[in-house]
Design a protein around this nucleic acid. Structure first.
Lengths: 201, 201, 201, 201
DNA sequence: GATGAATGAGAATTCATTCAT
DNA sequence: GATGAATGAATTCTCATTCAT
């Protein structure tokens, strides 16, 4: 796969960009990726199809911007919890971070559901990978600070399990809404995540 | 929406069906769902576009057949382990089942990777849901037999966590090939899955 | 337009021909000309698509056979009245013939409606023209016998008006079922037809 | 069946619409309805297939526009005669209206011949029915004004015969060009039409 | 004589993208 | 900067017809 060229052809009206991305979010949520035609997005944004191409290089570029927005929003929403984590006891900090993650996903539920269900993962993998990398780095540091002497490989393994499990379970919990109370879900997830890095009994 | 009728409009040569499904697998792997046109699949199968429609009602029906093949193969591959589970101690039986699951996924890695990365989930959700349901039922029964007196809601919650976590981690382990030894992965997964149903300390 | 080649490639089982034509009648009536595919007709006839081509040269040839049957049936149904016409007074004979025509059309109403509404006229024009020609000839003779001395051109004009008007009104009466009693319709039509050949007042 | 929405998806160049409709007329005349593909019409109009769909929702919509043009033109051409009819004696007014009808059909002969011969009637029935309805209403009013005391059912019957007969004979006269002088045709038709509403002798 | 799987040209329609205004 | 009419390649699907068995 050749690396995708990214970012606007030209930067013009900040407001128009926002309107297009808003429209794309709305159209994607309404009709899914396949049916989300550029003309439809343009119409929803109240601009002409030609205008789209003044701001975005192609259709994927618009989708890219949508994902970017979600990812950035998520990152910002979770950042405080991550920064505050080091100062708290392990269980509390973990719970707090997971709660922040869950809250951030909940706040973006419709769009995330659209992507998870209706967009091929390869379309948003790059940005998601990048975000996951960032979160994993922080998680690794937090863990390393509390497990001096544990081999790096073990810390990485624990991080891998913790991040992957969290990511999946939180998204599914939000999207599927299983009959599990929010607190019970967070408690169980916290326990599980902590379990990945427990010293062998 | 009326339930989509599935599979052959007419039953003809068994070999041609196989060639079309093989071709579909190959085309999906090569170019993803969106670009996998019926003409492309037909060409890859060495048949005319019209022939496709003697065997499949539309494009989705072909994809359906591909998924069916994976799901059925998976179900059969895992069945012996599930049947043998009741007779073994908890830890051994869990490990054995998870090993069978991992092995079955490994055997289908390229196809599963294709679907996970390149096909919108809604396209294979119905069959996957059905398979997950079947597996969940068995898991629930095994658990219930070993946790007499535990409320049904708790058993269901444990099953939900266990099945979702296993599904995701096993697929990611196979697809991403993280630097975690197979046995270590299985051990950690076994521990985690058992943890979901552990009596509160 | 090149003259259409006609009639079966080979004459084989008389019964199979009948079954195919029956099936064509039924399919045409059910779904119209456009949707009446050869495969559909074959299925309705209980034969394979290939078999059709042992009896008919192409799709139009089948439609041709259907029309032929209707036209022949119509001709036979009307013949007695036409033959008996010479022996009766003008008004009675005209009424009798028109009644026979109406009855013959009524007996074929569904098929005629299908053709009139759903088949381009050019498809059945040749046979219809031939039939009309035959009927016109008889009508002309009957008229000539009763209007000695009237110029041929006048007789032909009267025949033209009478045949065209009858054809159209009878078919519309049967197909549209206007709220006109059958007898009143026949009386009015008789009066009109006789009017075409009335000596100028 | 929901009523088909008709005419432009978007309104664009008036000239392009005309070119497409012109092309449709020409293609329909050349190859008939079945063979008149949208691509063919587009090519004949000198536009791309996609452009067609900026103006028309589907193939039938194009045919609809063609018919609309004929029907509207006919309606406008005949309107003055219909409006002037009330002021003239019965025979004169009838002759004048029939002359206007004949003239209007003559002016559209090639197109009408195309439709009559090569387009399934159900394709243009709705508009034709509407036009016939309008004309019938006027005819009924003219008749009613001159036949006070005649039961409505009788007037309706006379109108039905007159309109149907006129419609058919005029179209056939123009399309078939039988060896009947125009004036003689109009005289005979006038006599026939008046005959339908004559008080019983 | 019959079969029916296979054919493949061609139909209607879509939509990302361009460019003259 | 914006427009929006126009593009045209590509897509899904059909169906009259053939021919090896």
């Amino acid at each position: 796969m050749p690396p995708k060229r990214r970012s606007p052809t030209q930067q013009r009206s900040r407001e128009t960009v926002a309107r297009i991305v808003d429209a794309a979010v709305s159209v994607l949520s309404d009709v899914g990726y396949d049916q989300a035609s550029t003309n439809r997005i343009a119409a929803a944004a109240g601009v002409s199809p030609g205008t789209l191409y003044g701001y975005f290089s192609d259709k994927d570029d618009i989708v890219f911007a949508v994902i970017e927005r979600v990812v950035e929003g998520f990152g910002e929403a979770v950042a405080p919890a991550l920064r505050g984590a080091a100062a708290l006891p392990e269980r509390e900090s973990t719970w707090m971070v997971l709660d922040a993650v869950l809250t951030a996903i909940e706040a973006r539920a419709p769009l995330i559901e659209t992507f998870v269900d209706r967009v091929p993962a390869e379309r948003y993998a790059p940005q998601l990978d990048q975000l996951r990398e960032r979160v994993s780095d922080v998680a690794f540091q937090l863990l390393a600070a509390r497990r001096p002497g544990v081999p790096v490989a073990d810390l990485e393994r624990a991080t891998w399990f913790a991040v992957r499990t969290t990511e999946h379970l939180v998204v599914r919990y939000v999207v599927l809404q299983p009959p599990i109370p929010r607190d019970a879900f967070l408690d169980e997830l916290t326990r599980t995540v902590l379990g990945f890095s427990a010293p062998p009994a």
